[in-house]
């Protein structure tokens, strides 16, 4: 990366926004794997690998997988958050490999959130 100037901040923001926003012709889904120490300790790395495997198995290109930090509910790790077009993000808790595969099939591929593993939907309030 070359040196950033102040005006570049806005440009980077615009450019990178595509990673955050989901559009009909852009990413199908944005999947955040919560990988703080708590998440990793309870198996988030395994969840991430499972997801990446599932994605590469069917050569999917429009799913954006992001490793991120602790989501706050350490007692319910491993957690992932899935956001699909036109739907609020859904947080899945207490995952394992099988559950992840099911969520991948139902929610990411099928567009239907899996209620039994989901805890909450929506964005957290920031002030």
């Amino acid at each position: 990366m070359s040196k950033i100037k102040i005006l570049d901040l806005q440009k980077i923001k615009e450019k990178n926004k595509a990673e955050f926003e989901l559009k009909k012709d852009g990413y199908r889904a944005r999947v955040v794997v919560h990988m703080g120490t708590c998440g990793v300790a309870s198996g988030a790395t395994n969840i991430l690998t499972t997801l990446l495997n599932e994605i590469s198995n069917i050569r999917l290109k429009d799913v954006n997988v992001i490793p991120s930090g602790c989501a706050g509910l350490c007692a319910y790790e491993p957690m992932i958050t899935i956001e699909t077009v036109d739907q609020p993000p859904v947080k899945y808790v207490d995952l394992n490999e099988e559950k992840t595969k099911e969520v991948f099939k139902e929610h990411i591929m099928g567009g239907k959130p899996v209620k039994k593993y989901a805890l909450v939907s929506g964005n957290e309030a920031t002030y």
Binding site: M1, N16, E19, F20, P67, S68, C70, E124, T126
Partner: peptide
């Protein structure tokens, strides 16, 4: 009410672009 933790679970902490966004 998130201020300090406003980016938790949203950004990839290893990508500066995410933070800038």
């Amino acid at each position: 009410a998130l201020r300090v933790l406003r980016n938790r679970g949203l950004i990839d902490p290893e990508k500066i672009e995410d933070y800038i966004t």
